[in-house]
């Protein structure tokens, strides 16, 4: 008996060891590019040219960060990413919030305030999620042109809201479908109207899915390149497009350290959102799948 127990104990320890070893390797593997980016961004150009890509920076410098943020040339303009970074914020905040709020309203209506044809509407919205970006570029450009919104941030916001509604509606619909309709009925009988019920009962009950929707939308809107390059122009480009232009418009050879710093700056907000709110994302996705 006791020898058996020992074997299990030992093999338990051994398999633990392997699990951790594999996890550690996987983590290192995934962190490796980030390390290279960070290390490179703190090196001087000279060190990059002669040195080993994997080596730790010898002369630690923030110059490339300062350049990427405010000095590097993008096209003819030499004021770094900061203006474009601000563009992205101006674009992402309204786009994310509005599409999330509309999604919540849609989800509420499609599950609890049904009207004839609600399945068809939902079907069409779902269909919208699967339309490839490329196929709507020209019609969308025409529409924006007609609305006199081409080339600006407002137009871009509208595009992102339109594209996001399908997903946010899907999230909220699937969440609200699990909220018992009796709750709505009880509130109705107490005299509460549509918006009271939505704001006082359903919104507070759906914070996890709000997190999911916000994280999802923020990542998509912030990281978008295609819509940005197609529908915005000149000074209105989002940071993703600016990053591309910055990297491509270097005149005197590649400044890898600046490129790396610029890339990290562009990616920082989405990384931050994941670090801060990632656990809500997982929780929200799981909510409803397990009965409480």
């Amino acid at each position: 008996m006791s020898t058996n127990d020992n074997i299990i104990y030992v093999s338990g320890k051994l398999s633990r060891f392997f699990i951790y070893a594999i996890l550690l390797l996987a983590t290192l593997f995934y962190l490796f590019p980030l390390y290279v980016m960070l290390a490179t961004s703190f090196k001087t150009l000279d060190e990059i040219r002669i040195g080993d890509m994997l080596a730790f920076p010898q002369f630690f410098t923030l110059d490339s960060w300062v350049n990427a943020w405010g000095k590097s040339c993008i096209g003819v303009e030499c004021s770094g990413l900061k203006g474009y970074f601000l563009n992205s914020i101006k674009m992402a905040l309204p786009a994310v919030l509005i599409s999330t709020i509309l999604g919540a309203l849609n989800g509420f209506i499609l599950t609890k305030w049904r009207f004839p044809g609600h399945t068809l509407i939902f079907g069409l919205m779902l269909f919208g999620c699967f339309i490839p970006f490329q196929s709507i570029l020209i019609p969308m450009a025409l529409v924006l042109g007609k609305l006199k919104l081409a080339g600006g941030i407002t137009g871009l916001i509208i595009v992102h809201i339109t594209y996001g509604i399908g997903f946010t509606t899907l999230f909220f619909r699937n969440y609200y479908i699990n909220v018992p309709t009796e709750i709505l009925n009880a509130a109705k009988m107490e005299g509460a109207g549509f918006f009271t019920i939505f704001l006082k009962i359903f919104v507070p009950a759906s914070l996890p899915i709000f997190m999911v929707s916000i994280i999802w939308q923020f990542t998509n809107v912030w990281n978008d390149f295609l819509f940005g390059v197609s529908f915005a122009g000149g000074k209105n480009y989002p940071v993703t497009v600016a990053l591309n232009n910055l990297i491509n418009s270097t005149t005197s050879g590649k400044e890898y350290n600046v490129d790396m710093a610029a890339a990290i700056i562009s990616a920082a907000p989405t990384l931050l959102v994941y670090v801060l709110a990632g656990k809500y994302f997982v929780r929200g996705l799981l909510a409803g799948s397990v009965k409480k």
Binding site: E182, K200, A205
Partner: peptide, 9 residues
Amino acid sequence: FQSYALYPN
């Protein structure tokens, strides 16, 4: 209500 239908939050 048979299912109580309390407001969850």
